[in-house]
Design a protein around this nucleic acid. Structure first.
Length: 671
RNA sequence: GCUGCUGUAGCUCAGUGGUAGAGCGCGUCAUUGGUAAUGACGAGGUCGGGAGUUCAAUUCUCCCUAGCAGCACCA
């Protein structure tokens, strides 16, 4: 006999529904408007299909497009399925695999039919068209439970080997479900889904690109074609998103780097940066800043060799693990024919291999090992603006963000076991000061032991706990700091604390890190003399705040859209006379600016002031000092600040004092 | 490294089986103009590199190389 279910609604009311009824029935009982608007249901907190019957008494909240987070997730997931259906409709024999929602849309990984090339950009318009058809057909999406074997058999019968593999490996005991789109297409999916394809807005998605992606993310597996789309609830949201992408493109550091004449890259040294005078000014200012911070933090700066015998890298373990990403040269003088420039192919079997350093730490241990260190000397903090080379996979290179030659604000802290937590805590404070000086908000994450690792579990337990303790002492183990632990993401020798910056348009960048390492001191036999007169192993903390100068500058350019703070600006002010009669005064103003230590230029070209304003604005020069007859007579300058329309007329000395004050680096300003 | 796309003047980009074009920039001249482009004239290209097909290749094919998007990688 059938009983009535008690369904509690968010407003506290309870409705009695017959057994077998669904959230859709409840919506219909409440009113036709809601019935139409409702797209899913939260049943006892779990997001479910609106047409899935209740299991018993339940708390129900109906989901509509007003619940944007859930609605977007559902829509994107459905777009992914519609995408897969469209591709199979267009190209029968295409295998489907997997297609989730992403942060701004969806993708689906497919395998083109035998004999057909992987899908390309040219195929996207046709797929979009087919997707719109499917959406407009308003096909009902229906959930159905299947047995594992039936599902495997079906996939195999249809030649869907990836799906069959997947079905076979889904965890035991999990209910396997499929979703039908109409009666003619289905995909294996956990759901939930919208009640029908017609709930999607056919104008609210766009296929963006195709890319290769490995089956299950493993390079050893087949490469599929991943079709990416962006998906939204309506056209307005889609357009807003496309506009945001355009804006992000305008901040691209590669574009701004060229426009602002900061640096360039070229084939002959791909992955290495040619810094131009203006770009290198930013670098030098950052470097000077970081030196002040590290000097003040008890670090001592050293400089260690670029090239070391491979024996050293073998001992440290890097040669064994990373040789293919290192640059190595035989330690010989090649015979070169002066006429032709050809080097003789003299392979010196007896030559030692030297390797260019991919990191600074082994050399820092070697510095530490010179002489005998007492526990009284610890902690020893050795810093280096270390220039490293790594032969990165070519596809990984990206502007300043991923390069083959980079310089780190690197340092290693050698300390006793007892000092680790305190040193990590101090570092947290230093990192906070630095990021705050640039106006960055950040999150702190702890990357825990990876599967492949050196050292005992007990050591890892300890190392991970130390970092947790230090973060707790620094007061950062909370939501304000986005505190989170990431299993499996640590380095092979140690867990890592990571600092992730959030930039002006919401993207995150991992920059800073600190890692407690007990492996390298062991491998390179670093010791200190303890209180007891015996030899002890120091702990080595690897740490960096900028990470690499190249990448950090790239991040700054994008964060500020080229308009870096005055203290970093390569050219802080340009003096622009309105007519050439004033060139003399302009030069006088320039000389005074330079004497005050400001980075300034003059623009004496035979151009109108409009032209000069436009040009220097586009080059992101923070201040334009316009001088005409009036300014000359009165000994003033008219200051135009980037991004502002109004000018400010000040006596020259006052203007210089103001600029100088504003151009003071943030750490010196506080002093 | 893998998949897809791209490489034409300093930059952004058009174009063609018969050895090339625009805008900006650059140079010269005129103009001395008060806050986002003054005008005229001019110079500038082995069409990424190599091989092949062809009477003829910047264009079509293949290989290499670099870049772009993504994947994988990131000590």
């Amino acid at each position: 006999m059938s009983e009535l279910l008690k369904i509690s609604l968010p407003d506290g009311s309870v409705r009695e529904m017959p057994e077998g009824s669904t959230p859709a029935d409840v919506a219909a009982a409440i009113g036709p408007g809601l019935a139409k608007a409702a797209i899913a249901a939260k049943v006892d907190g779990e997001l479910r299909d609106i047409g899935r019957p209740f299991d018993g008494d339940a708390e129900l909240a109906l989901v509509t497009n007003r619940d944007e987070e859930e609605a977007l997730e559902l829509a994107r997931h459905d777009f992914a399925h519609v995408l897969a259906e469209a591709v199979q409709a267009l190209w029968p024999g295409t295998q489907i695999t997997f297609g989730p929602a992403t942060d701004d849309g969806f993708y689906y990984d497919v395998m083109a039919p035998e004999g057909r090339d992987p899908f390309g950009m040219d195929d996207l318009p046709a797929i979009e068209e087919k997707m719109r058809e499917i959406i407009k057909a308003d096909k009902p999406l229906r959930r159905e439970a299947w047995s594992r074997q039936a599902l495997i058999d079906k996939w195999q019968a249809e030649g869907e080997s990836f799906k069959a593999e997947w079905a076979a490996e889904l965890p035991e005991g999990e209910e396997l479900t499929v979703y039908w789109s109409g009666d003619d297409w289905m995909d294996m999916c956990r759901g939930p889904h919208l009640p029908s394809t017609g709930k999607l807005d056919p104008q609210a998605f766009k296929l963006m690109r195709v890319a290769g992606a490995y089956w299950r993310g493993d390079q050893a597996n087949a490469q599929l074609t991943r079709i990416y789309g962006t998906g939204w609830l309506n056209k307005k949201q889609l357009n807003a998103h496309l506009h945001r992408l355009e804006e992000a493109g305008k901040r691209d550091h590669r574009k701004l780097g060229r426009e602002m004449d900061l640096f360039h890259l070229q084939e002959e040294a791909h992955g290495s940066v040619f810094w131009h005078p203006k770009g290198y000014k930013i670098w030098r200012e950052l470097e000077a800043y970081m030196r002040r911070k590290m000097d003040g933090g008890g670090y001592r700066e050293i400089k260690t060799p670029q090239l070391m015998d491979v024996r050293q890298w073998t001992q440290s373990g890097h040669w064994g693990k990373y040789a293919e990403n290192m640059f190595a040269v035989p330690d010989i003088v090649p015979d070169v024919d002066e006429e032709s420039g050809a080097a003789s192919p003299k392979v010196a079997n007896d030559a030692d291999w030297m390797a260019i350093k991919p990191m600074n730490c082994p050399a820092h241990v070697l510095v530490f090992k010179q002489g005998i260190t007492s526990y009284r000397d610890l902690p020893i903090r050795l810093g280096e603006m270390g220039c490293c080379h790594r032969n990165e996979p070519h596809g990984a290179l990206h502007g300043l963000m991923r390069v083959r030659q980079f310089t780190q604000d690197d340092a290693h802290i050698f300390c006793t076991e007892d000092q680790v937590v305190e040193e990590v805590r101090k570092f947290c404070k230093l990192a906070d000061e630095v990021y705050s000086d640039f106006g960055f908000k950040y999150h702190v994450k702890l990357a825990l032991r990876p599967e492949k690792r050196f050292g005992s579990d007990a050591d890892w337990d300890k190392a991970e706990q130390e970092l947790r303790d230090a973060v707790a002492e620094a007061g950062m183990d909370n939501e304000d700091y986005g505190w989170e632990e990431l299993p499996g993401e640590g380095a092979f020798y140690a867990p890592k604390l990571e600092w992730h910056l959030t930039d002006a348009i919401g993207r995150t960048w991992q920059v800073g890190t600190i890692q407690g390492d007990r492996v390298l001191p062991e491998r390179l036999d670093a010791t200190y003399v303890g209180e007891d007169g015996g030899r002890h192993r120091p702990v080595m903390l690897h740490r960096a705040i900028f990470g690499s100068y190249e990448r950090f500058i790239g991040i700054l350019i994008e964060h500020f859209a080229g308009k870096v703070p005055l203290w970093l600006a390569p050219t802080q002010a340009v003096v622009a006379p309105i007519v050439s009669d004033i060139d003399g005064y302009a030069s006088e103003v320039l000389a005074k600016l330079e004497a005050a230590g400001l980075r300034a230029e003059s623009d004496l070209r035979n151009e109108k002031i409009n032209y000069k304003v436009r040009e220097h604005s586009l080059k992101k020069v923070p201040h334009l000092l316009v001088v005409g007859k009036r300014e000359q007579e009165e000994g003033t300058v008219a200051i135009r600040t980037l991004g502002e329309k109004d000018q400010q007329v000040l006596p020259l000395d006052d203007a210089i004092a103001m600029l100088k004050a504003n151009a003071t680096p943030p750490d010196l300003r506080r002093a």
